[in-house]
Design a protein around this nucleic acid. Sequence first.
DNA 1: TGGTATCGATACTTGAGGTAGCGAAACTGG
DNA 2: CCAGTTTCGCTACCTCAAGTATCGATACCA
Lengths: 198, 198
Amino acid sequence: MGYRVLMTPATASARPPGRPRTGVNAVVFAATLSTVHELGYARATVDRIAAAAGVAKTTIYRRWPSKGDLVVDCLLDAFGPVPLEGTGRAELMASAIRWIAAKISEPGVGDAFAGVFSDAVSDPALRQVLAARLQEPYRAALHEALGEPDGRVLFFIDVVVGTLLHRLGMTGEPMVEADVAALVEMVVPHFGGDTGAT
Amino acid sequence: MGYRVLMTPATASARPPGRPRTGVNAVVFAATLSTVHELGYARATVDRIAAAAGVAKTTIYRRWPSKGDLVVDCLLDAFGPVPLEGTGRAELMASAIRWIAAKISEPGVGDAFAGVFSDAVSDPALRQVLAARLQEPYRAALHEALGEPDGRVLFFIDVVVGTLLHRLGMTGEPMVEADVAALVEMVVPHFGGDTGAT
DNA sequence: TGGTATCGATACTTGAGGTAGCGAAACTGG
DNA sequence: CCAGTTTCGCTACCTCAAGTATCGATACCA
C-alpha cells in the first residue's frame, strides 16, 4: 500500500488537506540511477541519493518504505511499457529481447536492476514487490501478445533476463550486440518463432 | 593469497611450527550451507555461522578474509569437479546443465550461490574472486570438452546459470525438472548438439 | 486564521561486517 | 621439561548503512 507514486498531479482528483508534496519524484529517480551508476548498488546509500537529489533523507522514506521499493519504482519509471508492435511472433519476441537488453545497458539501470534482484534473494518481502510490480505487468503483456501459457512466458523471462543480468553481474559490463543477437537466435526458435536465419 | 584451504592434512608436507589448525573447515562449510538454507544469505551472519559450527567468529576471519570468500570456498567444496563423461556433444552439454541444476537445488547451495553473486554485483573484488576461483575452472573444463571458443562457452554459462539463478531468485524455489528439460532442449541445439527430440 | 500534511535538519537505534588484543592451548625442537 | 610459535575462544570495539523519531518551519485549504 501507499503506492500512489508515478501519478501525474493532473490525474489526482480531490486534493486532500495539508501541504502538497513537492514534485521531486523524477529528480529522485534520476539521482538514484546516477548514484547507482557511479558507486554501484550497495554503496549508493539513501543518504547519498538524497544528497544527489537535493532532498532530505526523511523525505525519501516518507514516500518509499525502503530502498528496495524506491529502486523498484525507479525501474518502473525507467522501463515504461514494453513495445510490442512486431508483426509476427518472431519479430515480437526479438524486439522484446532487444528492448530489455537495451534498457539494461542504460547507465545505472542494469546495476539498479541487478542490485534489487540481489537483495530480493534473501528478502521475501522485496521479492514479492519485485514479482508483483515489475515482472507481472510484462508477464501479462507477453502472455497477451504471444499467446503462450503462463509457464512458458515465465520461462522466457527467466532465460532472457537471467542471461542478461548474469553477464552484467559477472563482468560488470552489459552484453554486447553480438551476444544479444545470439540470445535471440537461441530463444526465438525454441518458442516456435522463425528467425529467418540460416 | 592465503588460500591453501581444501587441502587435506596428508597433502601438506613439512609441518610449520606452532599449534596446527583444527580440522573444522568441513564443519564450517556445513554450517554455512545449513544456516543460509535456514535464514537466507543476508540473514546468515558470520556470527550465526560461527555459532552453528561451534567455532569462534575470529577463527572464521582468520581463515577467510570475508564472508564472500568463505561462501566461494564453500561452493567450491559443494560443487566439486563437473562430470564430463558424456559420449557426444549433446550428451555432454545436457549432463552439464542437469548437473548444475541439481547442485543449485541442493539445500543451501542455490541460496549461497545467488547470495554471493548478488554481493558481487556491487563489489568488484568479490566479482574477481568469483570469476577466477569459481567460474574459470568450469569454463576451462567446458572449453576443453566441447571445443567451443571462449566467448561461446561464457555465453553458455551465462544462459544456463543465469536462467537457473533468476528462477531461484524470483520464486525462492529451484527450477523444476520439466523446465530444466526445456532449458536443455533450447540450449543444446543452439550449440550444434543433437538432442534427438522432435 | 486555524487545521493539516509536508519539508529539511539533527539525532538516534539496530544490525552486520570486520578488527584488536588477551590469556589459554597445542604443537615443535632442544 | 622448556622455550618458541601459532592457533584457539572470548570480549570488546569500530564503521557504515538502513530505518525511525522528533521539531520547528512552510504551504495549502476552508
